[in-house]
Computed example of a mutant assay.
Amino acid sequence: MRIGELAERAGTTTRTLRYYESRGLLPARRTENGYRTYDEDDLRLLRQIRTLQDFGFDLEETRPFVECLRAGHPAGDSCPASLAVYRAKLSELDTLIEELRFIRAQVGAQLAGAEAQLMTETQPRCEFGG
């Protein structure tokens, strides 16, 4: 299939496909007349990349998954390098979750303090907002 069809089937743009090609994630096969040509395996690569990006992986983090598929494995996450990326991403997410919990606790404390202060104030109440 040609680049336009692949882009349509993958739900992306030809510009994105050219970018992936320039980054070495998508093979650059050409016909005799210079047209890019792709097959179902390339569509699988793109679906893997897009799924991972939907999960928050950056483009470079998808590389081990793509390489695993290119090596003939049935899934992009059936290689040790892919599992290592999963582990690193989980660690990153755990850190972000902890940071968000800390920030949430601070915002909650600020809110509680502000509400307590509001209850003891004798000045006119602000009518803006809720």
Results as ranks from 00 to 15, higher is better:
R47Q: 14
E60M: 06
E99S: 12
V66R: 08
D54Y: 02
L26D: 09
D54F: 04
L83K: 10
T62G: 01
G24H: 10
Y38S: 08
T122W: 11
L25R: 00
L59H: 00
D41W: 05
F128L: 14
G4R: 10
R87K: 11
R101G: 06
A112H: 03
S22H: 00
Y86L: 15
T51F: 13
L26V: 05
L96A: 13
C79Q: 08
T95A: 15
E121Y: 06
R87D: 13
R29G: 03
L100C: 11
G4P: 05
L43N: 10
F102M: 10
A114Q: 14
R87C: 03
I97H: 11
D94V: 08
Q48P: 00
V107R: 14
L25Y: 00
D54C: 02
G11M: 10
E67S: 09
L83R: 11
F102Y: 11
E32I: 04
R15P: 01
T95R: 15
L52I: 03
D94T: 11
E121R: 15
A71Q: 13
L93K: 09
L26G: 06
P124I: 09
T31N: 04
C79Y: 04
S22Y: 00
G24V: 01
G129N: 13
Q53W: 03
L59F: 00
R44W: 08
A112E: 13
C79L: 07
E127S: 14
R101I: 06
R18N: 05
L100D: 10
T122Y: 08
T13G: 03
Y86N: 02
L6Y: 09
T95G: 10
S91F: 03
L45G: 01
I103Y: 11
D77T: 07
Q117V: 06
Y19M: 01
T37E: 01
N33R: 13
Q48N: 05
E127Q: 15
L17H: 01
L118K: 12
P74H: 06
R18V: 06
E8W: 02
E40W: 04
R29I: 02
L111E: 12
Q110F: 08
R15Y: 00
A112T: 11
E127P: 03
L96M: 13
R101L: 10
L83P: 01
L83Q: 11
A81R: 12
S22E: 01
F65Y: 12
L100R: 15
L45K: 06
P74V: 04
R63G: 05
L59E: 00
S78F: 05
F65I: 04
T95C: 08
R29Q: 06
P124Y: 08
T12I: 04
F102W: 09
T95I: 06
A10H: 05
E92K: 12
R36A: 03
T51Y: 12
Q106D: 14
R2A: 02
R30W: 07
L69F: 08
V85R: 02
V107T: 11
S22I: 00
L100Y: 08
I103R: 14
E32K: 09
L118N: 05
C126G: 13
L59M: 02
